[in-house]
C-alpha cells in the first residue's frame, strides 16, 4: 500500500498528459493493431515454429551444423550476394559520379533511367531477362547472326543469369544513397587538389572517394540486405539449378511441407538481415529516412 501511495503523486501528471494525447494515440491504434496482428505476430510464429517443430529444441538449428546441403545453400547465397553487391556498387558509383557532375538537363534524363526500373514489376524484369538471355533469346540470336559465336551461350539458369538479374534490380538502390553523399561534397575540392598537382586519379582516390564513404556504406548495407532474401529473380533466372536461401525455404514449405527446416532457414535469414543492420545502424541514419524528428 505504501508503495502505491508513494507512486500516485508522480503518476498523476502523467495520466493527465496521457489523457490529452489519448485521442492522438487513437489515430495510431488501427495501424499498430493491424501491424501487430497480421505482421508481427505471424513473424514471431515463424521463429516459434523453428524451435518447436517437428519436436521442441534446437534440432533444426543443429542441422545447420551437420547438413552439407543446408551449408551449401547458405554458401551459394552468400557468394552470390557478395558478387552482386560488389558489381552493383561499382556500377552504381560510376552512375552516381556521372550524375553529380552532369549538367541539369542531362541529369534529369539520367535520373529517369535510374528510377524507371524501380517502378517496373520485378517479375516483368525477370521475364524480360529470360527472353533476352535464353538460348533462343534476343542476345544469343544477335550474337549468332553477327557471327561472333556458333552455338548459343549459356547465359541463364545458372549463377551468371542470377547475377545479371540481381545487379539490374539493385543498381538504383545503390545509386540513390551514393548520389546523396556525393551531392553534399564541395565541388571545388577536386579542382583544388588538381591545382595542387594531384593527377585526376589521385584527386579522386585521396579526396573524393574518402568523402563518399557514408554513401558507400549505406549502399552496401541496402543492396546486401535486399540481396540476402531476394526470391523472385533468383528463382526465375536460376531455373531451380542454383538454390538460394529464399527459394530453398519456399521448396521446404510448399513442396516438401517440412516446416521445421523451412522456418529455421527463414529465422536464420532474418537474423542475418538484423545482424547486418545492427552493425551498420550507427553509421547509416535509418531513422532520418523514415521522417522521425528525433
Amino acid at each position: 500500500m505504501t508503495t502505491l501511495a508513494a507512486t500516485l503523486p508522480r503518476t498523476a501528471p502523467q495520466t493527465r498528459l496521457l489523457g490529452a494525447s489519448l485521442s492522438w494515440w487513437l489515430l495510431i491504434a488501427p495501424a499498430v493493431i493491424l501491424m501487430l496482428a497480421f505482421y508481427a505476430f505471424p513473424l514471431a510464429e515463424v521463429l516459434w515454429i523453428s524451435f518447436t517443430e517437428p519436436e521442441p529444441g534446437f534440432g533444426n538449428y543443429e542441422r545447420l551444423l551437420t547438413s552439407p546441403a543446408l551449408q551449401r545453400v547458405w554458401m551459394t547465397t552468400l557468394r552470390i550476394c557478395v558478387i552482386t553487391t560488389a558489381i552493383t556498387l561499382v556500377a552504381g558509383y560510376v552512375v552516381a559520379y556521372a550524375l553529380v557532375s552532369a549538367p541539369p538537363r542531362i541529369q534529369r534524363w539520367m535520373f529517369v533511367c535510374v528510377l524507371l526500373p524501380l517502378w517496373i514489376s520485378v517479375l516483368v524484369r525477370a521475364f524480360a531477362w529470360v527472353t533476352l538471355l535464353r538460348s533462343q533469346g534476343v542476345v544469343n540470336e544477335a550474337l549468332v547472326a553477327v557471327g561472333l559465336i556458333d552455338r548459343p551461350l549459356r547465359l541463364i539458369w545458372n549463377e551468371f543469369g542470377i547475377a545479371v538479374g540481381m545487379v539490374h534490380y539493385m543498381i538504383p538502390y545503390a545509386v540513390l544513397p551514393l548520389y546523396a553523399s556525393m551531392r553534399d561534397i564541395d565541388p571545388r575540392l577536386v579542382p583544388a587538389a588538381r591545382g595542387l598537382g594531384a593527377t585526376r586519379f589521385e584527386a579522386f582516390r585521396r579526396v573524393f572517394l574518402p568523402l563518399t564513404k557514408p554513401g558507400i556504406v549505406a549502399a552496401t548495407v541496402l543492396v546486401f540486405i535486399f540481396s540476402l532474401g531476394f526470391y523472385v529473380t533468383p528463382a526465375i533466372l536460376g531455373g531451380g539449378r542454383t538454390l538460394m536461401v529464399a527459394e530453398y525455404i519456399k521448396l521446404q514449405i510448399l513442396d516438401l511441407i517440412r516446416w521445421g527446416v523451412g522456418t529455421m532457414m527463414a529465422s536464420t535469414l532474418l537474423a542475418a538481415v538484423v545482424l547486418v543492420l545492427a552493425i551498420f545502424a550507427r553509421i547509416v541514419d535509418f531513422r532520418r529516412l523514415f521522417g522521425s524528428r528525433h
Binding site: F41, V46, K250, V273
Partner: peptide, 27 residues
Amino acid sequence: LTDLVRVLMLLPIIVPSIVYALGIYRL
C-alpha cells in the same frame, strides 16, 4: 514510443517477404 511505432511500421520493408510469407501462410 512513437519512434518504436515507426520502426514497427518499417518492418515490411526490412524483413524479406519470404520470411513473412511463411508466417502469414500458417496464420
